[in-house]
Structure formats: C-alpha cells, structure tokens
C-alpha cells in the first residue's frame, strides 16, 4: 500500500520516534527569550576555532554528538546522518561528517533543510532501511553574512525587512522503536514557488507563498482542518513574511485560522536589533530542538506542524537579475 496521500504528502505507517535532540546556539540567540531551553549557549562566535566556518562545523558536530549521547549511543552505532547547511558545497555538514564517521547524506534546501532532513530521515526509518538516523543542520551569522551579503565590518544600514541569520545548530535522533513520544507522523514535500520577488533583503516576502502553499497542500492531502494542530510554525519568514502568510491563509481559505507563529520571530526579542527576525537553517532547528520539542515532551504541545522555509537563490543568480525561488517542507510531529 502506498504511504503517499494526495499529491505531496506522505503518511508514515509506523511513525519514527524522535528519541532525543540537542541544540547549540550563539551568544545572541542565548540572550533571546529561550536562552534557558538550549543545550548549550556559546560565549563567542568562534567557538575556540580559527575561522567562523570551522566554528559552524564544530557546532553541527557537537549538536549531533550531544543528541546521540543523550541516548548513550556512540557515533559508530548511528546508521545514517542526514545533514546540511547554508554554505557553498554544504561544507559545515561535510566537515562535521568527516569527524563523526557516520554514513552521510548531504542535504541542501537553504533554510528549509531541517524539515527536508527530518522528512528524509523519517522515510529512511519508516521504510525499514535504517533504525537509527540523525538529522541535523546548522547556520552561522557571520559565515552566511560573508557568503550572501557584505563583509561583516562594513558599515551598511539594514532595511527593516532584512533578517538576521541565526547562529545555531540542531540535531534530532530518529529511531524505529515502539513506545515513547513525539513521533513524526506525516510530511508534505513542497514545490518550488517563485512569486517574482528579487530583493535579497526581503526574503520573508519571497518565501511566504511557498509556506502557505505547502500548508494548504498538507491540509488538502490529509483532509484535515487547520485546528488539528496545536501549533503551526514556519521556519524563518520573519515579521514581514509572517504577516504576509497570515493574509495568504485567508486568501487560500484556510479556516479556522491556524494557531500560527514563526521561528524567526520567536527566536529573538524586539530589542535585539534583528529587523524582521531570524533566518537560516538554525532558526527552525534551534526553536525545534530547544523550546518546542521540550514543550512537546512536557505535553504542552501535542500536535505540531513544522514548516521550514528556504530561499533558493545564490548571490550569482541575484546579480544576474533572477528572482528568488522558494520552497517549504512540512513535518508533522505528534504525541500519539
């Protein structure tokens, strides 16, 4: 029997258990509203390394290590690592995998990589190929800034729609074991949507339609109404993208209005000078592997839809005048 339902959604026959998780965040994220909920808050952006790139890779590696050590596993006992990040050639993930010696699949979905990795990992586990898989992602403010924008010490004024790439890494361990919660019950694979936006300082606007389209497809495919979930969170739309998404929900006829928020808005408080909000793979990863999964394990959230959003452009295509294609993948986490 096919596990696919509708056009884009997969429903897991034996939903994989999220048996443990871990998050590491940078100093700024630690000063935000959820500082207490992360496993580790770094004191500086270099994390005792020579370069920011090395620091990011180390954060990713440590997140994986911490997640698996909570279940008393050694890296050699993990069957598969599915991981990605924002940098060219996903180097943070590649170099972390070099150290960890776990069979490795690299992922790139820009800031949607957490959901992409999790749904791929869940398919690998539910498909019976693996029984113990880690999905992990990272982003780092300064590595992203220098790759996608301007040198960090250059005095430029940011627009109110721009976002702050989160310095964060998150990892979840998926296992095929009976008993326990939360579990990944279904997932919706997004389409690439391009609504003609080309301002790289306003990615929330580019990504909001992709997020709404995926959420709409999820509800259509599963015949669910939006109040099925206690919380729907998008990955990094920011304040601007979130406001747009709420408008688009109404236009798409998603009723009742879902209980909706955005990780990029939640991750920082208003005084932290992040303009529209957080972004990057780490935005959804940190919120999920920090406060959200904690609340799920306490039973304060029982049904969650995580919709990580990614803007799939590069500086090269932006300079060539291309618009920003965007994607969103949804993963449903439930306490069964």
């Amino acid at each position: 029997m096919s596990k696919k339902q509708g056009r884009q959604t997969i429903v897991f026959a034996s939903p994989p258990l999220i048996s443990s998780w871990a998050s590491l965040v940078g100093p700024k994220e630690g000063e935000g509203p959820w500082g207490e909920d992360f496993d580790q808050v770094l004191h500086d952006y270099l994390y005792d390394e020579q370069t920011w790139e090395k620091a990011e890779s180390k954060m990713l590696k440590e997140a994986v290590k911490q997640a698996i050590s909570k279940r008393y596993y050694q890296p050699s006992e993990i069957e598969l690592l599915i991981s990605g990040d924002l940098l060219n050639q996903i180097v943070s993930a590649n170099y972390a995998a070099r150290e960890l010696s776990i069979p490795f699949l690299g992922m790139y979905g820009a800031c949607s990589t957490m959901a992409e990795s999790m749904l791929t990992a869940a398919m690998a586990v539910d498909g019976g190929f693996f029984s113990c898989v880690v999905a992990a992602v990272s982003s780092h403010h300064y590595t992203a800034e220098r790759q996608f924008r301007t040198p960090t010490e250059q005095g430029v004024q940011k627009s109110a729609t721009s976002q702050w790439t989160a310095t964060a890494a998150g990892a979840v361990l998926l296992e095929a074991v009976p008993g326990g919660n939360p579990r990944i019950t279904s997932a919706t694979i997004g389409q690439v949507i391009d609504m003609g936006q080309s301002d790289a300082a306003n990615m929330g606007s580019a990504m909001a339609p992709a997020a709404v389209k995926t959420i709409k497809a999820h509800f259509d495919d599963l015949n669910r109404s939006p109040d099925y979930y206690d919380l729907i969170v998008t990955g990094d739309l920011g304040k601007v993208g979130m406001a747009l998404a709420q408008e688009l929900f109404i236009r798409e006829g998603l009723l009742p209005q879902p209980n909706y928020s955005d990780c990029g808005v939640l991750l920082y408080n208003d005084r932290q000078d992040v303009n529209s909000g957080g972004s990057g793979c780490g935005s959804s990863a940190a919120m999920l592997c920090g406060p959200i999964l904690k609340k799920m394990s306490e039973g304060r959230i029982n049904r969650l839809l995580l919709v990580a959003t990614g803007a799939l452009m590069s500086p090269t295509t932006s300079f060539q005048g291309e618009t920003i294609p965007s994607i969103a993948h949804a993963v449903a986490l439930e306490n069964i």
């Binding site: 109110a160 729609t161 306003n202 606007s205 601007v240 406001a243 747009l244 408008e247 688009l248």
Partner: peptide, 9 residues
C-alpha cells in the same frame, strides 16, 4: 499585498 504590509523605511 507586500506593499501594504512591509514596514516603511
């Protein structure tokens, strides 16, 4: 819609 929603500089 974006014009309506995005904050003015």
């Amino acid at each position: 819609l974006i014009k309506k929603i995005e904050p003015k500089p």
